[in-house]
Simulated scan of single mutants.
Amino acid sequence: MSAYRTVVVGTDGSESSLRAVARAGALAGACGATLVIACAYLPTEADDRELQRAQDVLGEEAYQVVGSSPAEETVRVAGERATAAGAGPVRTVAVVGSPVEALLDVVRREDADLLVVGNRGLTSIKGRLLGSVPADATRRSACDVLVVHTTG
């Protein structure tokens, strides 16, 4: 089996997701792979009802970036974290959409062979009942998925 060539990791700017970014950066650096850091965001004109509905259902799990400027800043900071962890070539991308759809779209576009996600949401009751980003991404990804333990 050959080493990974392209690794995709998602971030929402939370400390938990930045731990996954650091792990992905270290792994990509060790493999000599390109790291692609993605942040999904809602446009600033997103329907307030949509945002409130997500907050009502998911509570603290509903960490969604709103606006392209905050998303660009999120991936910039994540890129610095990944580089500090040992990543070689790093690309960043901010994508409009839900986190899972955005990540899977980036995986397809980049022809990635590894997707890295944090485990936030996997252990909560709401995450088990309603689905979570790591669970949904793992179930639907066409490439290998590494779930990093990022929460206590």
Rank of each mutant, 00 (worst) to 15 (best):
L58P: 15
A24S: 14
L146W: 08
A28V: 03
T74E: 08
L51S: 09
G67R: 06
V145L: 10
A102S: 13
S141T: 08
R108Y: 10
S17P: 09
V57I: 08
V75D: 12
R128Y: 15
R108E: 14
G25I: 07
P134H: 07
E45M: 04
G152M: 12
E101D: 13
L35K: 06
S16Y: 05
T83W: 00
G88P: 01
L103F: 00
P99T: 09
G29I: 06
A78M: 07
R120Y: 09
S132E: 03
D113S: 02
G10Y: 04
L42S: 04
V75H: 10
D111Q: 04
A40D: 09
A20F: 05
V117P: 03
A33G: 08
L114C: 08
V36A: 02
Q55W: 07
Y63R: 10
A24H: 15
Q64L: 14
A78N: 04
G79W: 06
V65D: 06
P99H: 10
T83H: 00
E101K: 13
T11K: 01
V57K: 14
L42I: 03
Y41Q: 05
V95Q: 04
G88T: 01
R5C: 00
K126P: 03
A40W: 04
L27K: 07
V148E: 06
V147P: 10
I37N: 00
S124G: 12
V75F: 12
G67H: 04
L42Q: 06
T34K: 10
L42R: 04
L51G: 09
Y4R: 04
R5G: 00
A40C: 08
A112E: 00
G118K: 04
R76I: 10
A87D: 01
D136K: 01
R120Q: 09
R108V: 12
V7Y: 03
L122D: 12
D113Q: 01
G10N: 06
V133Q: 08
R140M: 08
G97A: 15
A62W: 13
Q52I: 09
A137R: 05
T151P: 12
A94Q: 08
R49N: 01
E15C: 08
G13A: 15
G97V: 15
T74M: 14
R76S: 11
S98E: 14
L122Y: 13
A24F: 14
L42M: 06
N119P: 14
